[in-house]
Computed example of a mutant assay.
Amino acid sequence: MTPLPMKAQTGSSVWSTHPARLWRRRFAVIIVLFLAVCSIVMAGPVGTASAAPPGKVVDTSHRHTPVILVHGFQPRQVPSLSPALAFSNPLGFKIPGAWTPELVTKWNETYGGGNTWNALIKFFKEKGYNDQELIVFNYDTSQPNFDTAQKLFNVIVNVYDSFGAQKVDLVTHSMGALPARLALASLAYSKTPRVENFVSLAGPNHGTDTAKLCPYPSCRDMERNSNFLRLLAALNKNLGITDGTETPGPVHYYTFHSAEAVDSSGRSVGSCDKVVRDGVQLRGAINFELPCSPGGSSWRGLNWPFVGDHLNIVNSPGVFQEIYNLLNPN
Rank of each mutant, 00 (worst) to 15 (best):
D278T: 14
D147G: 00
V199F: 01
A165V: 02
H64V: 08
P53E: 01
S61C: 03
A165R: 00
L69D: 02
T148Y: 01
A211Y: 08
A43K: 11
R63C: 09
K237V: 11
W299N: 11
P291T: 10
N89R: 14
Q143W: 14
D59T: 11
G113N: 12
V199I: 08
C292Y: 07
V67N: 02
N89I: 10
H173W: 11
F73M: 14
W99I: 10
T60K: 14
G47K: 10
D209L: 06
L213R: 00
P317G: 03
W99P: 07
T255I: 06
I121S: 01
F93P: 04
V104Q: 12
G284H: 05
K212A: 13
W23I: 08
S39G: 15
E109F: 05
D209N: 09
A84L: 08
G249K: 06
S271R: 08
P294C: 03
I31C: 00
Q166E: 15
S13G: 10
M42F: 15
V171W: 04
K106E: 15
V41P: 10
G47R: 07
P90A: 12
K151A: 14
P96F: 10
D147T: 06
M42D: 12
A20K: 12
V104F: 05
P45R: 12
T2Q: 10
G55S: 10
P248H: 00
A28T: 11
H252M: 02
L81K: 04
